[in-house]
Design a protein around this nucleic acid. Structure first.
Length: 779
DNA sequence: ACAAGGAGTTTATAGACAGCATGTC
DNA sequence: CTATAAACTCCTTGT
C-alpha cells in the first residue's frame, strides 16, 4: 500500500512521511490500516520488533488527532518514553503537540491537557487515573506499547488494570495494542474487542542459527565457518568474524559479572579492528564515563570502551547507559555484552546477536531455569540494522551436538509462550483493589468484581472463583488496616428481601465499599497498601523522635523497595549492627528464629545503612565498593528512598504523627546526600553535597552567610570563579562578581560573614574522610 | 626463592515503575 | 533438586 492511499491524516503528515523516505507501507502496516487503524478501530498488532510498529501507532494517533481527538502512548520504561517522545516530536512540524510524563518528568495535568500526544509509563497513567486527571476522559486513542508485558508478575497487572480503566472511562476509546509476537495474540484481541494483525514479517531478513564447534548452522540449512582459534571463546570468534566485515554485535549473558568479564575479553578482539579516528573518539567517551562517576564499575567500563567494547546492565548509571547505547548506534562501539535489560530497552540493533546464556539463575526454580522463548526472541529480534545491514543474524551457542539440537527445538523452531494475566495475585490486587475503590470505579463488592470482569484475567480464567476469593482476602486486609470501610448497613436498609442473584452466589455479602481518608492518600501516593501499613505502624510505634537510620530501615523493608541481598557472612555483620542500633529501629523486629523474616529485616537494615552512609556524605566510590553495587544501583536506591520518604511524610501528616518533621528532614537529607548541618546550604541552587561541605568547612553554614561572607573565602572553598559567581547570584547577593578576588586559603579562613555564629571551626571539616573511616568501622 | 601455571574449590547469580516540586560538581 | 563462569586457594612446576 502506498501512503498516498491513506486518508484522514493531518495535512502535512504525508509530506512529512515522504521526506523521511517512506512511500510504501510495510505489509503489517497496510494490514493495520485495512483493519481500520486510521478509522478509530481497536487493533492488536503482534509483530516482531523493528517491523514498523511505531508507524502503526503513529497512523492511529494522527488520524485520531485529525478527527479532533487526543492520544496517549503508554510505554513500559522511562527511557522508552523519552525515545518515543523524540520520535513523535518530528510531527510538531505539522502542528502536532507532544508531551511526556513519567515519575521524574515535570508535568501538570493542565499542561498535559494541551497536548495532542502524551507519552507516559503505565504506572504514571495509572497514577493519573487515580488522581482523577480530567483530560483522560477526553482521550480518543490509546496506544499500549509492548503489551505482552501484561505477563509480567510485578508490573503486568498495572498495565492490564489501567487499560481496563481507560476503556471504562471512555467507551468510545480506540485501543491500539502493540505486542511482540506471542502465542495468544488472538486472546488479547478478544479481550480488547480488537482486530488482529499477527505476523512474523520483518523488513530485514533474520537468520537464526546455532554455533557449535567451528560452524554456524542456520535455520534455512545454510552454514558458515566460524572457527574458534586457540583458547578463545565461541562468542569471541563470532564477534571477530562480524567485526572484520564491518558489523557490530550484541552478546546477551545471564549476569552482570559475566557481562563485564565478556566485555573485557571481547575488548581484545575489537581493539585490533579500530581505526585511529575511532580510537580517539572512544578515548573521549571513556573519559566521559569516568567523569560521570568515580567508581570501579565506571573505570572498568571506560577501560573496555577504549577498546571498542562495552558492558551494559542495571548497575550502570543512566548516563552511562545512554553513552554506551548511543556509541553503539553510531557504530563506534563494536560490541556490547549485556544482561537482558538491553533487549527490552531502547532501540540498539546489531548485525549479529549472540545469545550466549540461555539459562538463568532462578531461586524459585531451585537453580538454573531456561529463558522463555519470548525473551530469547526479543533478544534475537535486535539483529539487523534497518538500512545498514543486508540481514540480521541471531546466534545461540552450543557446546555439544545434543545441545545444538535442543536449542533449535527449544528456541528457533518454537513459538513464543502465551501471555497470561497475573492479576489474581494478592500483591497486585491489594494495590489495584484499593485504587479502584478510592477512585470511584467501584463502590460495592459486586461493582468491584464486575470491574475486574473487564480485565484480561477474567477473559482467560477458567477458575472464576479464584479472583473472587483473592479479592475477598484483599478486602479483609484493606479493612483491617483502615484503608477501606465496608458499610454493611445496606443490608439492613434495603430490607434483605431483595437479595440479588449475585448476592446469593457470593454468600449474601452485599456491602458498600468506601476508601477512608488514609486509603485515598495511599492510593494517590501510589504506594502499595502494605508499604503504607508498614510505615504507619512504624511511625505510630515510635516513642521518641525517629533517627535517620530508623526511618531508612523502615522504608527499606517496605515491598516498594527492592532490597539489597545479604551476601555470605553479612548476616553476621548486620546482626551485630542490629544489636548495636536496635533501639533506633521502628516497629517490632521478627524473632531471630523466624529465619526468613529475620533475614529480610537485616537486609532492610543493610539498605537502610547504605542510605545512612549516603547522608553521612560517604562518597559514591566508597559506597559502591562497600556494598558491591554499581553507581546505577546506588542512585536507584536513593531515588526510591526519596520517593518513599516523601510518601511517608504525607502519611505522617495524615495520621497526625508528631514525627512529620523528622521524616521530612530524613527525606531532604537523602535527596541531597548530606548531614543535617548542610541542609540549609544545599537549598541554594548550584550547591550540592560536595560544595556545601566545602563551604561549611570555611564557616559558611547557611545561605545568609553566603550573602555576607568574604568573597575570597567563598572562592577559596569553591575553586572556579564561574561557579562561585553563579552561586552568589543564586543566593541573591548584590555584587556576585569575582573580578580581582584572590581565593583565601581554606584552612586559614575561619569564621566568615557577620552573623558571628560559632562554627565549631574544625579546619579539617572540609574532608569527610574522618566520618567515612568511622562508619567503615561498622563493617 | 619465587613466579607462573594448573587443578580443585567456592561463590554468586536480571530488572527498575511511582509523589511532589525544581536544579549536581 | 536442574548450571556455570569467575574468583579464589592451594599445590606443582620451572627458572
Amino acid at each position: 500500500m502506498n501512503i498516498e492511499e491513506l486518508s484522514g491524516l493531518p495535512p502535512g503528515a504525508l509530506e512529512h512521511f515522504r521526506s523521511e523516505g517512506i512511500e510504501e507501507l510495510y505489509p503489517p502496516q497496510a494490514a493495520a490500516v485495512e483493519a481500520g487503524a486510521t478509522e478509530g478501530e481497536n487493533l492488536v498488532a503482534a509483530v516482531p520488533t523493528a517491523s514498523g510498529k511505531t508507524m502503526i501507532a503513529a497512523l492511529s494517533m494522527l488520524s485520531a488527532i485529525e478527527r479532533g481527538g487526543t492520544a496517549l502512548y503508554i510505554v513500559p520504561l522511562r527511557a522508552l518514553a523519552s525515545e518515543k517522545k523524540a520520535e513523535f516530536e518530528a510531527y510538531e512540524e505539522f502542528g502536532v503537540d507532544v508531551g511526556v510524563t513519567t515519575g521524574n518528568y515535570e508535568s501538570t495535568s493542565e499542561w498535559l491537557a494541551t497536548k495532542d500526544i502524551v507519552v507516559a509509563t503505565s504506572e504514571k497513567v495509572d497514577s493519573l487515573v487515580r488522581n482523577g486527571a480530567d483530560w483522560l476522559s477526553e482521550l480518543t486513542c490509546v496506544v499500549s506499547d509492548e503489551v505482552h508485558l501484561i505477563d509480567d508478575r510485578n508490573r503486568g497487572p498495572t498495565l492490564e488494570v489501567t487499560l481496563a480503566k481507560l476503556r471504562k472511562l471512555n467507551p468510545q476509546l480506540q485501543t491500539v495494542a502493540l505486542s511482540a509476537t506471542v502465542g495468544n495474540a488472538d486472546e488479547i484481541a478478544d479481550w480488547l474487542d480488537a482486530e488482529l494483525v499477527d505476523t512474523d514479517w520483518r523488513p530485514i531478513d533474520l537468520q537464526m542459527g546455532v554455533h557449535y564447534g567451528n560452524a554456524l548452522n542456520f535455520d534455512d540449512g545454510s552454514t558458515r565457518e566460524v572457527p574458534v582459534e586457540g583458547s578463545e571463546k565461541q562468542e569471541a570468534a563470532l564477534v571477530r568474524d562480524i567485526v572484520q566485515e564491518g558489523g557490530s554485535s550484541l552478546v546477551f549473558v545471564n549476569s552482570r559479572r559475566n557481562a563485564e568479564a565478556a566485555a573485557r575479553r571481547l575488548g581484545q578482539v575489537t581493539s585490533r579492528e579500530l581505526t585511529d579516528d575511532e580510537r580517539a573518539e572512544l578515548v573521549e567517551l571513556a573519559d566521559e564515563i569516568r567523569e560521570d562517576s568515580d567508581t570501579e564499575t565506571s573505570r572498568d567500563l571506560a577501560d573496555c570502551v577504549e577498546r571498542g567494547s562495552a558492558f551494559h546492565h542495571a548497575g550502570l548509571s543512566s548516563t552511562q547507559r545512554s553513552i554506551v547505547e548511543d556509541a553503539f548506534r553510531e557504530r563506534l562501539l563494536k560490541v556490547i555484552s549485556a544482561t537482558p535489560t538491553l533487549a527490552a530497552g531502547v532501540n540498539t540493533p546489531a548485525r549479529r546477536v549472540i545469545v550466549r546464556d540461555w539459562r538463568r539463575f532462578d531461586p524459585s526454580a531451585g537453580g538454573m531455569a531456561p529463558l522463555d522463548v519470548l525473551e530469547v526472541h526479543q533478544m534475537m529480534g535486535r539483529a539487523g540494522r534497518p538500512g545498514l545491514d543486508p540481514y540480521g543474524e541471531a546466534v545461540l551457542l552450543a557446546k555439544s551436538h545434543d545441545e545444538s539440537q535442543e536449542l533449535f527445538d527449544r528456541y528457533i523452531w518454537a513459538d513464543p509462550e502465551a501471555v497470561r494475566s497475573k492479576l489474581a495475585a494478592e500483591p497486585a490486587l491489594r494495590t489495584h483493589v484499593l485504587a479502584t475503590i478510592a477512585s470511584g470505579f467501584a463502590r460495592t463488592r459486586e461493582g468491584l468484581l464486575e470491574f475486574l470482569e473487564a480485565t484480561l484475567y477474567a477473559s482467560q480464567s477458567t477458575e472464576a472463583r479464584r479472583l473472587e476469593s483473592v479479592t475477598d482476602n484483599v478486602l479483609d486486609y484493606l479493612e483491617r488496616n483502615d484503608f477501606v470501610e465496608r458499610d454493611r448497613s445496606g443490608d439492613a436498609d434495603d430490607a434483605g428481601a431483595f437479595t440479588s442473584a449475585a448476592d446469593l452466589a457470593s454468600g449474601g455479602r452485599s456491602e458498600d465499599l468506601e476508601a477512608t481518608s488514609l486509603g485515598h492518600t495511599v492510593s494517590r501516593l501510589y504506594l502499595d497498601p502494605m508499604s503504607a501499613a508498614e510505615i504507619v505502624h512504624g511511625l505510630e510505634d515510635a516513642d521518641e523522635r525517629p533517627t535517620a537510620l530508623g526511618l531508612y530501615q523502615l522504608v527499606s523493608r517496605t515491598p516498594d523497595m527492592y532490597e539489597l541481598y545479604l551476601r555470605s557472612g553479612e548476616d553476621e555483620k548486620f546482626g551485630e549492627l542490629y544489636y548495636e542500633r536496635e533501639a533506633e529501629l521502628l516497629g517490632d523486629a521478627p524473632s531471630e528464629f523466624e529465619e526468613e523474616r529475620f533475614e529480610d529485616w537485616l537486609a532492610a537494615l543493610k539498605t537502610g545503612k547504605l542510605l545512612e552512609d549516603w547522608v553521612e556524605e560517604d562518597d559514591e566510590e566508597a559506597i559502591t565498593e562497600r556494598y558491591k553495587i554499581g553507581p546505577g544501583d546506588l542512585r536507584g536506591k536513593v531515588d526510591t528512598a526519596e520517593w518513599l520518604l516523601g510518601a511517608a511524610e504525607s502519611l505522617a501528616s495524615e495520621i497526625d504523627s508528631e514525627w512529620t518533621v523528622a521524616v521530612r528532614e530524613a527525606r531532604a537529607r537523602v535527596e541531597h546526600g548530606v548531614s543535617e548541618e548542610l541542609l540549609e546550604l544545599v537549598s541554594v541552587r548550584g550547591v550540592g553535597r560536595k560544595r556545601a561541605r566545602q563551604l561549611h568547612g570555611v564557616g559558611i553554614e547557611e545561605p545568609a552567610d553566603l550573602r555576607n561572607a568574604d568573597k575570597s573565602v567563598v572562592l577559596g572553598a569553591l575553586k572556579g570563579e564561574k561557579t562561585a559567581e553563579n552561586i552568589l547570584e543564586n543566593v541573591g547577593r548584590e555584587d556576585p562578581s569575582m573580578d580581582g578576588v584572590e581565593p583565601a586559603e581554606s584552612a586559614a579562613a575561619k569564621t566568615a560573614g557577620s552573623n558571628g555564629e560559632d562554627t565549631n571551626g574544625d579546619p579539617t571539616a572540609a574532608t569527610e574522610s574522618d566520618e567515612s573511616q568511622s562508619s567503615l568501622g561498622d563493617f
